[in-house]
Design a protein around this nucleic acid. Structure first.
Lengths: 241, 241
DNA sequence: GTTGATTGGGCTAGTCTCAGACCATTGATG
DNA sequence: CATCAATGGTCTGAGACTAGCCCAATCAAC
């Protein structure tokens, strides 16, 4: 952890890949995080390419790749567009073991540590500020939605709940960072079998997080998020062995 | 904070600028964070372009721009290279007021919230794991270095101390995120007048952070970091009015 | 001095990416 | 059934970016 470590940190690659690759990754993130739900369509190409800051040609290549891979269904004409066809595969312990091993211990550990840090940070920020009533309502609403979710919607609404915490801080940087942190392990989370006992446990932990935030108790919020995420992390780490 | 907020979060621009602009930003980050100290030289062009994942041509354009702007002195021949000539301007309340206003309230608030969240997250992570002796030694060493620093070295060693916390977690993602968070406000921090009473206060807070981490007390670590950063944040926010 | 290794400086051919224009298809609306 | 607005599909010329090569300058070592 000498000086050269910091050189590696700062003088890292400026770009993760070419425009096409980065666009594919971004669209996959939107799809897998459930920002665009199955059946929904992406914004029109002209609007989306402007939002992403890339040319329509490059965007179309990315959409084509995702269409070929079965994530999107592209239809022409008015009321057409790129519709999301991807539905997360059914949770499966075998798939999970495979995915965890494909990721590798170092990358997995990095991703889990990262997520724990930024999600705890977001929660304690939210528990520190005087939360306006409408923001409290959003948080409570997201939790209620999640609690009455069926198995098909659970992961998507779980994502929505967790990301709402970061968004409610009002920091766009923090929101994007938390979204990035979650998307790094979204495939793993989606593959975790959903047992009723685990869902019940998670519901209690989610309630504890909301309670701590509403009570403006940052220490309690930190502990609640840590307990919740460490449970998942331990489960994933176990699949490495 | 409806669904469209999450669309804005995820479907944001894929790239912040062209390769040249991003390279300039990255080099400026390395310089202003003190990763390459004044008088030091950057890695050779061929090595640096490989690390940054860009062509030598683009890197040279960026170096040329920074050289023209007075940040670097480029010398040819063996033992030549791009030497850092930039020294942070003397802290000045007027400069600070100007810089804070140029940034704008929203961006400043975002940056400060972001930094608070990720630095707290990093500290509590480090206070949660069983820290190896050599890592404890690094932390203590960085603090000692900072405490005996002169005014010229203070900001650079303060940066080194804070970034070490994130690096010691072993998460590269967290380390880069904390470096990014700090670099967003490095110009502001550098412009804060250094009064002895403030430095003494900061030293006590730094000690509290290290003590909490060494004691493996994540709640105390969170509180110590929050107290330390909120002091700075409040000072910066005050310069907006 | 002479040498040789290392470094910045510069050129070229080829690929990636872009902006903008135009075409083709669809389906709600009248 | 005809219209037309919104959408995906396609093409072109220009600019950004790259890989690879060779040249020029510098200076420690011999």
């Amino acid at each position: 952890m000498d000086e050269s470590a910091r050189l590696m940190t700062v003088l890292r690659p400026v770009r993760a890949g070419n425009a096409f690759e980065e666009t594919v990754e971004r669209l996959l993130q939107a799809i897998k995080l459930g920002v665009v739900a199955p059946g929904d369509k992406l914004p029109a190409e002209r609007e989306l390419s402007a939002r992403l800051g890339i040319s329509r040609v490059t965007l179309r290549e990315a959409i084509r790749a995702l269409s070929d891979a079965g994530y999107l269904d592209v239809r022409r004409g008015r009321y057409g567009g790129a519709f999301v066809t991807y539905v997360p595969p059914k949770p499966d312990a075998g798939d999970l073991r495979q995915a965890v091993r494909r990721m590798g211990q170092d990358e997995l550990s990095d991703a889990l540590t990262f997520r724990l840090a930024v999600d705890c940070g977001a929660a304690q920020i939210l528990a520190t500020c005087d939360l306006a009533e409408d923001k409290k309502a959003v948080l409570v609403h997201r939790l209620a939605e999640l609690n009455r979710a069926g198995l098909d919607d659970y992961r998507r609404l779980d994502t929505a709940f967790h990301l709402s915490i970061a968004e409610l801080t009002g920091s766009a940087l923090l929101a994007t960072t938390c979204a990035d942190a979650r998307s790094r392990i979204s495939d793993l989370l989606n593959a975790i079998p959903m047992l009723q006992v685990n869902l019940d446990h998670a519901a209690v932990q989610h309630q504890a997080i909301v309670d701590a935030i509403l009570a403006a108790d940052p220490d309690a919020a930190r502990r609640a998020v840590t307990e919740h995420l460490e449970g998942t992390a331990a489960l994933l780490r176990a699949f490495l062995s």
